[in-house]
Computed example of a mutant assay.
Amino acid sequence: MKKLVLAAALTAAASTAFAGAPAEPIIEAPVIVEETQSSSGGIILPLLLLIVVAAAVSD
């Protein structure tokens, strides 16, 4: 009977020792912020070129 109680006590002690295992740390990916260009910046040059060509053709 003593061996059965001792085995039960050791089993209970061993199961609680591993019950609170530390969790793996959660590492978040770094956030990358890229600067964007204004959409109007790419259209101004072609519009100016079109105005210059139209003025040259009309003369």
Rank of each mutant, 00 (worst) to 15 (best):
T36E: 15
A13P: 01
E24K: 06
E34R: 02
E28R: 09
L45H: 04
G41W: 10
G41N: 11
P46M: 00
A29N: 12
V53H: 01
I43R: 00
E34S: 07
T11N: 09
A55C: 09
L50D: 02
L50Q: 02
G41A: 14
T11A: 14
K2R: 09
E35Y: 02
A7P: 01
P25L: 02
E24F: 04
I44Q: 02
A56V: 14
L49Y: 01
S40M: 09
V5K: 08
I32Q: 09
G20W: 09
Q37N: 13
L6Y: 11
T16P: 03
G42Q: 12
A23R: 03
I27L: 08
G42E: 15
P46H: 00
E28H: 07
G41Q: 09
A23Y: 13
L4Q: 13
D59Y: 12
V52Y: 02
S58R: 14
E35P: 03
L47F: 11
V31F: 07
A17K: 06
F18T: 15
T11Q: 06
S39T: 15
A14R: 05
A7C: 03
A55L: 11
I27Y: 13
A29S: 07
T36R: 10
S40D: 14
E35D: 10
I43K: 00
V53Q: 05
L49A: 13
L50A: 14
L48Q: 01
I51K: 00
V33F: 12
V52R: 01
L50N: 03
S38F: 05
G20Q: 10
